[in-house]
Amino acid sequence: MKQIQVQTHPIATRVTHWLMALAILVLIGSGWRIYNASPIFGFTFPEWATLGGDVEQALALHNDPGVASAIAWHFAAMWLLAASYLGFMLWNLVSGHFRRDFLPVGAASFWRDFSAAIRFRLDHRLGEYNVVQRVAYWGVLASVAMMLLSGITIWKPVQTYPLELLFGGFQGARIVHFVFMTAIALFIVIHVALVILVPKTFVAMTLGKATADHTGER
């Protein structure tokens, strides 16, 4: 049966989505460089994947492996992420996008869609979110909130002292910051892979509208 599907994204959603995307890329790249200065676990990130300028040049010029630039990036992009995240959340709460398209979320329906998805039997319908998608989006939005909270704890451990007790101390806050970074990075990998499979979602998120008939894009 032929069926026209439409996906639209208002300008507020598109602008805040792409600002968040840019901020998160900068924060992850610079965060990996900062992590490398004092690794929590037994590994470091490859230098080419980090943000903060040429390491050899920075070491030669001022005895610093580009951590200064990485921190400057991190403490600039944090404002961009906080502002665009707040804008995204407020807009979608007020406009009803969350309520209309991302609820309800139930265990039974999640399990139904999840088992269909892992057997590649879950159809993508442009403009509709299945329960696995809904849970993934709630998860990444909650992860960003956790990043902002643990991040402010690491930035201001004296001024926000009681907050770090929730994370198990200053070093605990660093681990929480790392764990939710990993969750967001995994989300991005899956998110981008699915966008490549259904490119019209990219069109909708960029230009505002995309249409497909059901026999076309899957």
Partner: peptide, 26 residues
């Protein structure tokens, strides 16, 4: 672009000036 940022963008004077301005705001 992401690959380039690792070795390029940070070292531009204009980028460093912009980051320094944000640092003063901070």
């Amino acid at each position: 672009l992401t690959l380039l940022t690792g070795c390029d963008i940070s070292d531009h004077d204009s980028v460093q000036r912009a980051l320094a301005a944000v640092s003063r705001f901070n």
